[in-house]
């Protein structure tokens, strides 16, 4: 877009040969080099390892590429194995976790942002903001620690439930498989609440204040202003966030799962990421772990592209990621 304005200057410079231009930009190339090396080593080199998914890979210590190319080719065997064994259970857990997460962590930040916008006192507003995004900045280790303490048999939640006589004896929250999905979803929502609200707040701050004044003159109530001005104004942001969420539906994360799960509920806590990790690295089934990971990456990639295309088509004002 921006290059159009500088078209004339660019045209002149482009008359030089590519070698001449590279020489002119040699210092830029020096600045680019470290990032490019990192990109190749830590992003593209691992992609070559995806070939493992189609082989019977065992590390022989002959170097990465040698081991990779020397491995026996087995086609789609690992994928067939996955689909015929644990696929449905793992997909159920993955989708349950991420859809419940979406249910809790999608509407709440919008509500928080809209209500924060109603706070007229700047000090109170910034205090609430500061307080609510604190959980985002602590590690999952500490967040898991907090949830396990609070939900333990002598924890505050059980104290509370017993005090209001909802239960006689402490509930073991981490012993019921499907409850784990809710615990993870709530933990995710808790951690991301304030952070996600900032994104909506910044969209709200871009709304023309004259619109609110005009609405006031027409006798609109504050509820009506929220409904007819604020929410429509942040609709593009809401759509973008939804696209991101859809694209990430298989990325449930693994830290929270690995930290809070236990063997008794593994059948319910195991998601694609932890499953690939357990088989691929803990059990040494490298090819199988890679195959499960590749399945996840490909489906995720398709989901993001599709969601992006849909939102581009559905909206007239270019609500899309790229």
């Amino acid at each position: 877009m921006k290059t159009k304005t500088a078209g004339a200057a660019v045209a002149v410079r482009h008359s030089k040969s590519i070698w001449q231009r590279l020489w002119d930009q040699r210092y830029l190339m020096i600045l680019l080099a470290p990032a490019l090396i990192c990109l190749i080593l830590f992003n593209y080199l691992p992609m070559t390892g995806l070939y493992m998914a189609f082989t019977n890979f065992t590390p022989r210590g002959n170097g990465y590429l040698q081991d990779l190319l020397g491995a026996e080719f087995v086609g789609l065997d690992w994928f067939e194995y996955f689909f015929s064994t644990d696929f449905w259970r793992i997909m159920r857990n993955t989708l349950a976790t991420s859809l419940l997460t979406l249910l809790f962590s999608f509407p709440l930040p919008i509500l928080l942002a809209v209500l924060l916008n109603e706070v007229k006192h700047p000090k109170i507003k910034s205090f609430v903001q500061t307080a609510t995004y604190l959980p985002y900045f602590i590690s999952w280790v500490i967040a898991a620690n907090i949830f396990m303490t609070f939900l333990s048999s002598g924890g505050i939640i059980n104290d509370l439930l017993q005090a209001v006589h909802l239960t006689d004896k402490p509930i073991s929250f981490f012993q019921h498989g499907p409850w784990f999905w809710f615990i993870i979803a709530i933990a995710n929502a808790w951690k991301g609440l304030g952070y996600n609200a900032i994104i909506y707040l910044s969209a709200i701050s871009g709304i023309d204040q004259d619109m609110y004044e005009a609405a006031s003159l027409d006798g609109a109530s504050r509820w009506q202003k929220i409904w007819y001005i604020t929410l429509p104004a942040i609709k593009p942001t809401i759509i973008i966030m939804l696209i991101l969420a859809v694209g990430n539906v298989l990325n449930t994360g693994y830290e929270q799962q690995l930290l809070m799960s236990n063997d008794a509920i593994l059948d319910f806590s195991d998601v694609l990421d932890t499953y690939a990790y357990r088989y691929g690295l803990t059990n040494g089934m490298y090819s199988y772990g890679t195959a499960v990971g590749l399945f996840k990456s490909v489906v995720s990639f398709i989901l993001v592209m599709a969601a992006n295309a849909i939102s581009k088509k559905a909206s007239d004002n270019d609500t899309a990621l790229f």
């Binding site: 830590f42 070559t48 690295l281 990639f301």
Partner: peptide, 14 residues
Amino acid sequence: TMYFGGGMVPYYMV
């Protein structure tokens, strides 16, 4: 690379 990667096992091998 923001949208696609090799995954955990290949990364570990590298």
